[in-house]
Amino acid sequence: MREFQYIVTDNEGIHARPAGELVKLAKTFASDVKVVKDGREADCKKIFALMGLGAKKGSELSFVITGEDETEACEELEKFMRENL
């Protein structure tokens, strides 16, 4: 299992467009990707669940990644978050 924390810096939060891109990226990995915000968990491969977290600027998220390509997935997802959100 791999894990990383991220605090959203984008002013708009995880709105539709980046959520779509994040889901697209998560789906390229075989690993299971969970996003946790304030104790609520969402499957990062499901756009409604992800948007339903209502992550805004300043929201603290933890990503929990489990599966065969978890190391690579963790790196790529963290990079995506830093560059886009």
Partner: peptide, 16 residues
């Protein structure tokens, strides 16, 4: 235009 790409993803959403 991006919204229609997102709509396509929404159609594929697992929970939905």
């Amino acid at each position: 235009a991006a919204i229609f790409e997102i709509h396509q993803m929404m159609l594929e959403d697992g929970d939905y």
